[in-house]
Write a protein that binds this DNA or RNA. Structure first.
Lengths: 168, 168
DNA sequence: CATCTGGCTATGGGACCACCAAGTCAGAGG
DNA sequence: CCTCTGACTTGGTGGTCCCATAGCCAGATG
């Protein structure tokens, strides 16, 4: 019921992950409002008022969080103008923001399963077929993988191993 | 660059997701310490001291967060006894906790890509083949899906559609 | 010009998070 | 018994998150 460690990592007492990517990710999107704003962006929302209205947070929080997400590179501020109105800005996802989709969807899937009595209000499906979407770790073979199927390698080891392989 | 909505959901101004699973999930695991403790559990850690030591948080925070994770059903407290020592408790993942793996891994993958100058210290690989693990939304066909390939249906609609299909 | 509106910014307050430091408490070893 | 240790618990401070209310400001409308 756990991952295994390879190479130098095997002795668990000799290393610690201070610069863990999960921790860094949580520093950027670790608040409720940040994730909900990103969810709204996936739903196609781009304008300030719509974010405030649909996420259900105050404008002050929305302004602060949107600014922070732009600074982090997850959203981009882009000018637009409706006829007869002044120039305003809308917030659109960058590539970096789009690439958070797996994490957000995985969280939603888990919440649907374990935190909702009736399986959650919304379901994500494949647009063309209408069949439900799943999100799981997967190896090269395409099989779903569980905890016991996974191993951790230090990045240095891994890069070195690939280079050795390529050199053959 | 966004999901599409089907059925009654198409008119975006007529509904709001107050009981969103993502929000509920964030209420349970929305802190840095909670996610890092779960990560450690995936790495095989079960004991209090090891959690404190390896996550790099204070014992006070670890105690509070572990208690909360047990209450949420993500970890389970289980007695153990080493010879010559008194009974102690260890913390092991429940099924609910294991099922968070996709979310945590997706977050790690994203962090490795965008928040680490050199691609992150650790890499998750398939144990038997050593090939890297990916995690993406996937349809029934097995293809990776992007934002534009996804659609949202209301759960009621979806259940009704399935029933109608089954009745044919 | 004066007004109105959409999109912020500022201020204050309550809750929570994390840190550090100190205290408690059960039982094994002496 | 006394001490020591592992596993917490308690207390205090600083920072962040969110809410609520109020203010500001650019420009289209009157």
């Amino acid at each position: 019921m756990a991952m295994t460690f390879e190479g130098l990592l095997a002795d668990r007492s000799r290393w610690r992950t201070d610069d863990c990517s999960i921790g860094k990710a949580m520093d950027v999107i670790g608040t409720r409002s940040a994730i909900l704003l990103i969810r709204e962006a996936y739903y196609g929302t781009t304008r300030f008022d719509d974010f405030v209205e649909r996420v259900g947070i105050t404008d002050a929080v929305a302004a602060a969080r949107l600014k922070q997400l732009v600074a982090a590179g997850i959203l981009e501020k882009r000018p637009y103008q409706e006829p007869g109105k002044r120039t305003r800005y809308e917030y659109v996802l960058t590539r970096m923001g789009e690439d958070l989709l797996p994490a957000v969807l995985a969280l939603m899937q888990w919440g649907d399963t374990y935190l909702q009595p009736e399986g959650g209000p919304l379901t994500v499906v494949e647009r063309v077929t209408g069949s439900p979407v799943t999100i799981r770790p997967r190896g090269r073979s395409g099989d779903d993988l569980g905890l016991d199927d996974l191993a951790i390698v230090s990045n240095d080891d891994w890069v070195a191993a690939r280079q050795a392989q390529a050199a053959q």
